[in-house]
Design a protein around this nucleic acid. Structure first.
Lengths: 387, 387
DNA sequence: CCATCCATAGAACGCGTTTACTGTCCGGAG
DNA sequence: CTCCGGACAGTAAACGCGTTCTATGGATGG
């Protein structure tokens, strides 16, 4: 389809008359857009050369005021808009950064995307956003597409899958990107095991999980259900690791039955919670893998008539807005999401400026997390809930 | 800043040695990216011409299988990635659509963005996303930036301001864009009063407001507070218009005190609601300008000990996820947000295919809205709430 | 053996940017 | 009152990289 379109559009133009700058085209179809004005047109109208027009455009070289004004007037008159493609082709940065998330409507990603967008805007850059819907293949494809567009940075956000061939492929892309002067930034995911020229922005995922589990333990909970999160995702693994470490440190044996992984969806949280309430192991607190799952669990709890926090404590992770909307308000782990997005851009973009000492190609920052105590946690009730 | 950066990057590369294809560059800095492979390189390595390589790339012309394989092998070996800029410059569509919203983390916009992104992806297009944070100037600037990048479509989303000079400027941009073969799409906002080549996707905003107000009236409410929404925004005006029409139709006089406009924020909803509860007019129901404002109002109500829906009915608008998270679950107006995004892309992109009958340049679709009844509305309590 | 069709090559083109270079005009030196 | 160095303005032309039109060599078919 690309082809046919492109052909149809182009085959109709270049034929006879080579040097005429396009007189003929103009009178073709009625409402049809007459050829876009070019630097040459502006130059001609202003009575200067194209180089001068370019200088006016870029203000990077002194141009007499009178000349500048004449050129600007000509641009206005012709409705001239520079062609970013031509400019990029000539070697100027395309001023674009790409961000790849799994889902834009998920607040976790949306906040990071906001940080990326804002930071990008500060540097007069535009932001290419893609959603993989959780498909690693699509992620790879998008990286390729962004590479084709010569994005200054390609930021992949969110947990990654522990799939060898995928990792290898990603490393390859990172090298290709780097060879072209772009940078692959891993945001909210662990670095590649294979060495590759990437930058990375992480948050203390394990630490946050440790802290909030410990918060639960400090209240006296000993049977804590860990609920949700795709098992193969790095995000899940890290959170679970922090959770386990906290248990271990207090000398509490780990019960596999209390680790109910699954997905990050609200539906999962609700369904599995309901099931476990009916016929699951005993527990007095729930550590939902993220706030969305917590929202689902909260609903199941409500429907089952289990009061939070009196009968059951509940915590989440991410501290997205829904955490404050739930009743009781959810105790959770805060992640500086927007800041992560900003850092991701800074890392990639500043790195691009000083191309002398490329040694620091592999920048990395790690941001802290902290728990936010609200109303969803209390000490376990005297008589442990019996199913 | 734009300029200095661009200069710094470029002034350092092209110097002596003009025809050598870059021998020198290679040995410059250690990790430095050696010049990217080009079609010419691939052609040379595969022993064919650049035309053939291009054909292999675009599969738009028969190429002998053996040749194709040789070319593909060469591309792989060199880590070749086409340059989208060069390609776009040569006349092929850049396969990019732009969307401009005021805020990505706002679910209203996020859902539309998702629709745009998905539909764009179906056509192998990438999506440029920008946030104006409500600033019309920034909106104009982003349109310009997208125009420079020759986006197939530029979709501006959300209510617009009733500012004459802004509208004029927008119309001008629409014409420039159209002249270049792109399209400006107005999504979720009324068409420009000034004639301009735009496409538009609307939703029945007035009708939704009418319906939900009527729903309240049918329950017996007569004193309904309309809360929130920027007065100058078209979205607010339309919703208010629907609200008023419903009142009128039931013969209920309009009370200016019951129209408390402001903003679309949660903070506004909460603050103003609290104020009105303390010292405002009498009313038995609240029509929040959108769900976010409703969430704020719900909190104020909760804090004031006013029960919903027993003591006070509450409805919102947009039907974003928070509506289902509130307790009681919020009765609201559903908008097919994602579908709007999809339609916006379709309108702009299909329109671009058949450039023969440009008459239909100004496409427009209007999607329906409907109310979603949940638990936040009840008949007014016998004894009207007295402050 | 010529008419065709196919695969491929050569070259023009699209549009800014930038370098190398020319022509001007200034002030100060001689 | 010239003459020279240098700051300034501005220009022609090369360049970046795919795409596609036109042309050509060769093979197949009649």
């Amino acid at each position: 389809m690309n082809d046919t379109t492109a052909q149809a559009i182009n085959s109709a133009s270049p034929h006879s008359d080579n040097q005429g700058v396009g007189r003929m085209r103009r009178q073709s179809s009625a409402a049809d857009g007459q050829r876009r004005a070019t630097v040459t047109d502006v130059a001609r109208l202003a009575g200067v050369s194209t180089a001068t027009v370019s200088r006016v455009l870029n203000r990077n070289y002194p141009v007499a005021t009178a000349t500048r004004e004449r050129v600007e007037e000509a641009m206005r008159e012709l409705g001239y808009v520079v062609n970013a493609h031509a400019r990029a082709l000539a070697g100027v940065s395309g001023r674009t950064v790409g961000i790849i998330v799994s889902e834009v409507i998920d607040p976790f990603y949306a906040y990071i995307a906001r940080g990326v967008e804002r930071e990008a805007a500060l540097g007069d850059r535009l932001c290419l956003v893609c959603c993989t819907q959780g498909d690693p293949q699509r992620e790879l494809a998008f990286i390729e597409l962004m590479h084709e567009r010569r994005a200054d940075a390609v930021i992949v956000v969110g947990g990654s899958f522990a799939d060898r061939s995928y990792t290898t492929e990603l490393a390859r892309r990172a090298r290709e990107l780097d060879a072209g002067g772009s940078k692959l930034v891993l945001c909210g995911r662990p670095p590649l095991d294979e060495p590759a020229p990437t930058a990375s922005v992480e948050y203390d995922n394990e630490g946050g999980a440790f802290a909030i589990t410990d918060h639960l333990l400090a209240q006296g909970h000993e049977r804590i259900l860990y609920l949700g999160g795709p098992p193969a995702l790095s995000t899940t693994r890290e959170r679970l690791a922090g959770h386990r470490r906290a248990l271990e440190l207090r000398g509490i044996a780990r019960d596999p039955e209390l680790e109910q992984l699954g997905s990050f969806s609200r539906a999962f949280g609700r369904r599995r919670m309901a099931e476990l309430l009916k016929e699951g192991p005993e527990f007095t607190a729930v550590f939902a893998a993220n706030d969305i799952v917590a929202a689902g669990a909260a609903q199941a709890l409500e429907e089952a008539g289990v009061r939070v926090p009196q009968d059951m404590s509940l915590v989440g992770y991410d501290d997205i807005p829904v955490a404050q909307e739930l009743r009781p308000r959810l105790t959770t782990v805060h992640i500086p999401l927007e800041e992560m997005g900003r850092q991701a851009v800074r890392l990639a973009v500043s790195g691009g400026d000083e191309d002398d000492w490329r040694e620091q190609t592999t920048g990395a920052v790690r941001l802290g997390t902290h728990i936010v105590v609200r109303d969803s946690v209390a000490a376990p009730s005297k008589h442990a809930r019996r199913v």
